[in-house]
Design a binder for these strands. Structure first.
Lengths: 280, 280
DNA sequence: TTGCTCCTCACGTCACGTGAGGTGGC
DNA sequence: TTGCTCCTCACGTCACGTGAGGTGGC
């Protein structure tokens, strides 16, 4: 029994036990993620020990789950097991959310390829200036669902059911569509004139001339309705600058699919040319 | 009603309707994935048409699912709807498989972080030369499960239950672990001396001195057992060159988890030093 | 005329993989 | 001594993002 707990391993031996290529191990050394226990000063040879195998497995598993190297480093470096577990739990939670949305995206794409092209009934409408309470932020495409849920929940609680003057909605700056990230404002119409708290601010929603279409389907399929509305607006040549508006009219409980939402999508247009579309 | 079906859009307008950034659209033009309907020869301005919105949505959705641009191009270029659907179906199938393995990996990682370190009972054994029928190939880490299933199924059918002399197994060249890809040979012991067909070839499994451990768990957790065995072998300093051997002893039907496999993992060692580990 | 949109390079990013060319260790 | 392992650059890959510096269109 001459076993040495920290037996020295060359990079090749360590590679075989960790499923990490020598190139990858050199890279992890360069970026300080997984440092060899010893480096020969004369030859530059890297030597690892058997004690490092467990860490290397954790690193590989986390990288297999696409955790960025910076986060993996935070996990490995965390002295405190609680802090370590927190980082991992956060990433695993994000992974599981991504899993679910990806599964939904796959299902939705199958549908997109078999279902016919959407034809939307577009209507022209002028919305008057409206007092609201609102929450605004710079939001990315990938986080919009979660952000909107949180903001609308906070707005609902702040305004109160009795003081609400209509369905909640949101404004999207063009950059949100053009660059995948931009200012988004969630709002709830209300005539309250006291001072809101938290992230909530009073907002006078400006009057606007709009081409309005109804999206009835999953939120992940909103792009199809946007495309259909944008297409008509472009073909009529009636579009003008300004944020896109959405209003959330609830779920369609008569549908077989439990995730069918009813969302009004409103595109700013020039009122002079409203002859091009039907009237509300 | 002056709508023009193919209305001209600047890159910014098209960007807003497709959720693709102008930079991304220029990139797709450069690589020939999504070409503008018109390019102004004097100014270089790109112009798209509303007819291209649907294609752009398909491209974006496929890219969101990480389909490589080459494959997306094949989908968009496919004139034949059947060919188009075949490419998409193949990728969606791969996506769904990846979804399942990722879900498993997440669950397994949670366990890895809470469960104690594996302690394996290692035993020394000399295996005599063994006649087998075998299938070999160059296989990557990500495809090993599928490949092994196919190869073992073909071997089982070729050899026949009555001519089988023991459990099936596999050999792995070091490159499989070091580079994530390498030669793998699946085998079934048999004394048959007729000529096999298909991918099957006769193979004399060479005699070998082995350190043998039993992995009892999910196949996705085999790395833990490899690490534990490799560690002991390294600490004793008894490892020698040669392929790793596995033998598949079936599932543990007594376990609550339906995916508990029993796999014998054998690491080639120098018989001179077998005093370091217990005897079989 | 202003300023917003669009243009073309060139370079950066992320996590490595792939040689080229050379040295060290058993 | 051979050849296998290891070394350090340097550059490539993939799908864009990010300026820099400049022109065009309403």
């Amino acid at each position: 029994m001459d076993g040495r707990p920290g037996a020295r391993l060359t990079i090749g031996q360590f590679s075989r036990m960790t499923y990490l290529s020598a190139t990858t191990l050199r890279h992890y050394h360069a970026v300080g993620l997984l440092e060899p226990a010893e480096v020969d000063a004369a030859t530059g040879y890297r030597y690892y020990t058997t004690d490092q195998i467990a860490d290397a497995h954790v690193v590989r598993r986390l990288r297999d789950l696409d955790m960025p190297i910076e986060e993996v480093r935070a996990v490995v470096r965390a002295g405190d097991p609680a802090a370590r577990d927190a980082v991992i739990a956060a990433h695993l939670g994000a992974m599981e959310r991504r899993l679910r949305t990806t599964a939904a995206a796959v299902a939705s794409l199958r549908e997109l390829l078999t279902a016919p092209v959407d034809v939307l009934d577009l209507q022209y409408r002028r919305d008057a200036q409206t007092p609201t309470w609102a929450i605004g932020a710079d939001v990315g495409h990938d986080e919009i669902r979660e952000w909107a849920r949180g903001a609308l929940w906070e707005l609902a609680r702040a305004v109160g059911a009795r003081q609400r003057n209509g369905p909640a909605g949101a404004l999207y700056e063009p950059a949100f569509f053009e660059e995948g990230r931009g200012r988004v404002v969630a709002f709830v119409p209300t005539a309250r004139d006291d001072a809101p708290s938290g992230r909530v601010r009073p907002l006078e929603l400006p009057a606007a001339d709009l081409a309005v279409g109804i999206h009835r389907g999953r939120l992940g399929d909103l792009d199809r309705s946007y495309g259909a509305i944008g297409r008509v607006v472009a073909e009529q040549g009636i579009g003008v600058d300004g944020p896109i508006r959405e209003r959330f009219l609830g779920r369609d409980r008569t549908a077989a699919d439990p995730d069918v939402h009813v969302v009004e999508v409103a595109w700013p247009v020039d009122p002079q040319f409203r002859v091009g579309i039907s009237q509300a």
